[in-house]
């Protein structure tokens, strides 16, 4: 094993600046003792609990005799609480902090202080904007690919052609607007989707009741509408409920980005046959492998370094295209949920 690692290291040196894909994947050695902290934005949110499950799975798999802590602030105290836990982790001499950052760049001084104390900072779900005080960001998906994911789901649900409308969050939600723009671009440029007509974009303000009413208004306005695409977890759930309540699920389907636990019944009864999101268990699992590798010194965290993250396969550290100078590991792609896999993910 040691020989193998030395070989890896030597070959990495030889390959030098070549691309990560060519480097041999580092296999992480389990059983090393390192304490780590999984720090979510705040506690009491299902997806963060799922990330913790994934991290616990990896913790057991790697046979780490150290402790994996899942601590977080309350929603009202998120920023100050994250800074406090980051500072405390440095005092405790934790090997790594896995952070879903909710404090913007305000976390930077405490994260830098933790790094100076020998703690590795691996972000997941939400990075440190400036990249300072962060060793690497484990990104759930490449946000640029979302247009294609939505177009593919529309193609499959509509069976090749039909009318579709978008029900978004608010008119000035930057991420949703970027995703809709990406969807429009894919529809316009790829001939594969020429049968799909995007007739309207409306906004439900990410409120259940408003979204519910907007969805019904869309059906009234466009009698031939076949699909409502909602890139927000609130909108997709409210639209599905509206179609189900009015008995419209045979004519108008719903799709978009949703949480399996909230979408379970609508997917099983056919109102929302397909929707997408990333798997937070996988995200926690991959984040743990990354942090473990770095905290035990088995990963240096350099761009181009490739390692094997257990059941999920090989990943490479690369430059983050959205934050030049910062490093990321891209988990991607989206997970598309259907009646086949939604039940397993919802629990």
């Amino acid at each position: 094993m040691k020989m193998f690692k030395t070989l890896c290291f030597a070959s990495a040196l030889l390959v030098g600046a070549s691309t990560g894909a060519m480097a041999q994947a580092i296999s992480l050695e389990g059983g090393q003792d390192v304490d780590m902290v999984l720090l979510p934005k705040f506690l009491g949110i299902l997806v963060f609990d799922q990330a913790n499950e994934g991290a616990q799975e990896a913790h057991a798999e790697l046979n780490n005799p150290g402790e994996l802590l899942f601590v977080g602030p309350t929603p009202e105290n998120s920023v100050a609480g994250q800074i406090e836990i980051m500072t405390t982790s440095a005092t405790q001499g934790q090997g790594a902090v896995m952070l879903s950052n909710n404090a913007g760049d305000q976390i930077v001084p405490s994260a830098k202080a933790a790094q100076a104390a020998g703690t590795k900072i691996v972000t997941w779900d939400s990075p440190i904007p400036s990249g300072e005080g962060e060793d690497v960001f484990v990104a759930q998906v490449d946000f640029g690919s979302i247009g294609e994911v939505m177009a593919d789901m529309a193609l499959s649900i509509l069976g090749g052609e039909g009318q579709m409308a978008v029900l978004s969050a608010t008119p000035d939600a930057a991420n949703q607007n970027a995703w809709i723009a990406s969807l429009k671009e894919v529809l316009a440029t790829n001939a594969k989707y020429s049968g799909i007509e995007l007739v309207d974009t409306v906004y439900g303000d990410d409120q259940s009741e408003v979204s519910y009413n907007r969805a019904l208004a869309l059906v009234d306005k466009y009698p031939d509408l076949g699909l409502i695409m909602s890139p927000t977890t609130v909108g997709i759930q409210a639209s599905s409920k509206a179609m189900q309540d009015e008995g419209l699920c045979d004519q108008v389907k719903v799709s978009g980005l949703g949480l399996p636990s909230e979408m379970l019944s609508y997917t099983l009864n056919g109102c929302a046959p397909e929707f997408a999101l990333w798997d937070f268990r996988d995200l926690g699992y991959l984040t743990y492998y990354t942090a473990y590798g770095m905290a035990t010194g088995q990963l240096s965290g350099e761009i181009g370094e490739t390692f094997t993250a257990g059941r999920m396969g090989d990943y490479t550290i690369e430059e983050d295209p959205g934050r030049p100078g910062s490093k990321r590991i891209l988990m991607g792609p989206f997970t598309v949920y259907t009646s086949e896999n939604v039940e397993a993910a919802a629990n």
């Binding site: 920023v79 100050a80 800074i83 305000q106 930077v108 001084p109």
Partner: peptide
């Protein structure tokens, strides 16, 4: 000065 950055939610609920 302590956090080296500001945002609209600084000291919210303090």
């Amino acid at each position: 000065a302590r956090v080296g950055a500001v945002r609209g939610d600084v000291a919210l609920g303090f």
